[in-house]
Computed example of a mutant assay.
Amino acid sequence: MQAGRIRYRLTFERAVKLKNDAGEIIVDEWVVAFRVWGSIEPVSGREYLTASEFRAGITTRIRVRWRDDLDPSLRIVCAGTIYNIDAILPVQGLHREAQIMCGSGVITEGGSP
């Protein structure tokens, strides 16, 4: 991994799960799991027109140094943008660098885009 490319400070957040009064598990808030430096590369953009709504989606590749506590249940926050993790891939299987495929900007409420 080239040091010049890892210029973004990324915050990985973990969901804190609590039970409500009815005993259902809910996500109450997101807390910081850890912070690392990494690179962000937009891979593709998509635009949708669904049910008279404009929906935009961006697929992004985020690269960080490998950590054993990387988990798809985490989310990444950088400069006010939230990235939902779709997959974590070790580069060449060496566990030195991780490629994290993320989605951002896709509205999924009320149906899939």
Results as ranks from 00 to 15, higher is better:
63 R>W: 00
75 R>E: 02
66 W>P: 03
2 Q>H: 12
32 V>Q: 15
82 I>F: 08
61 R>N: 02
111 G>D: 09
30 W>V: 07
106 V>R: 14
94 L>P: 01
53 E>C: 02
52 S>M: 07
38 G>V: 02
37 W>F: 10
93 G>Y: 04
65 R>S: 02
105 G>S: 12
16 V>I: 14
104 S>I: 06
26 I>Q: 13
45 G>C: 11
24 E>M: 05
96 R>A: 05
101 M>T: 14
62 I>H: 01
30 W>M: 06
97 E>Y: 02
42 P>M: 08
45 G>F: 14
27 V>P: 09
84 N>C: 12
9 R>L: 07
88 I>A: 04
47 E>V: 11
56 A>K: 14
26 I>C: 09
16 V>D: 10
54 F>P: 02
62 I>M: 06
86 D>W: 07
95 H>I: 02
15 A>S: 08
108 T>P: 04
86 D>Q: 15
83 Y>R: 09
89 L>H: 13
112 S>V: 12
65 R>C: 01
85 I>D: 09
47 E>L: 09
105 G>P: 10
43 V>G: 00
47 E>P: 01
29 E>Q: 15
106 V>W: 14
87 A>C: 08
41 E>T: 12
47 E>M: 13
20 N>S: 04
1 M>K: 04
83 Y>S: 10
105 G>R: 10
73 S>M: 12
95 H>W: 09
10 L>H: 00
49 L>G: 03
8 Y>R: 02
90 P>K: 03
13 E>M: 01
102 C>V: 14
42 P>N: 09
63 R>F: 01
75 R>D: 03
7 R>Y: 08
104 S>A: 13
106 V>K: 12
84 N>K: 15
24 E>N: 07
5 R>A: 07
69 D>T: 09
74 L>C: 05
40 I>M: 00
11 T>P: 01
35 R>Y: 04
71 D>H: 06
8 Y>D: 00
10 L>D: 00
100 I>C: 00
58 I>M: 14
8 Y>G: 00
15 A>M: 05
32 V>P: 13
12 F>P: 02
96 R>Q: 06
27 V>M: 11
90 P>L: 08
96 R>I: 05
60 T>K: 01
74 L>K: 06
27 V>I: 15
104 S>E: 13
100 I>Q: 00
35 R>W: 01
25 I>F: 08
63 R>T: 03
102 C>N: 11
44 S>Q: 15
94 L>W: 02
8 Y>V: 02
1 M>P: 07
55 R>I: 13
108 T>F: 10
80 G>A: 05
56 A>F: 14
20 N>G: 03
21 D>C: 09
48 Y>C: 05
99 Q>C: 03
26 I>A: 11
14 R>F: 06
44 S>V: 11
19 K>Q: 10
65 R>D: 02
57 G>D: 08
21 D>S: 15
112 S>G: 09
51 A>Y: 08
100 I>T: 03
101 M>D: 15
16 V>A: 06
42 P>G: 04
78 C>V: 03
84 N>F: 12
63 R>I: 01
55 R>E: 03
78 C>T: 04
4 G>T: 09
18 L>K: 15
36 V>A: 01
71 D>I: 02
76 I>A: 00
49 L>F: 13
63 R>Q: 01
55 R>C: 03
31 V>Q: 15
85 I>P: 07
58 I>Y: 14
29 E>D: 14
88 I>L: 04
11 T>Q: 07
77 V>H: 04
67 R>L: 08
52 S>C: 02
32 V>K: 15
31 V>T: 15
41 E>R: 11
18 L>C: 09
106 V>H: 14
35 R>M: 11
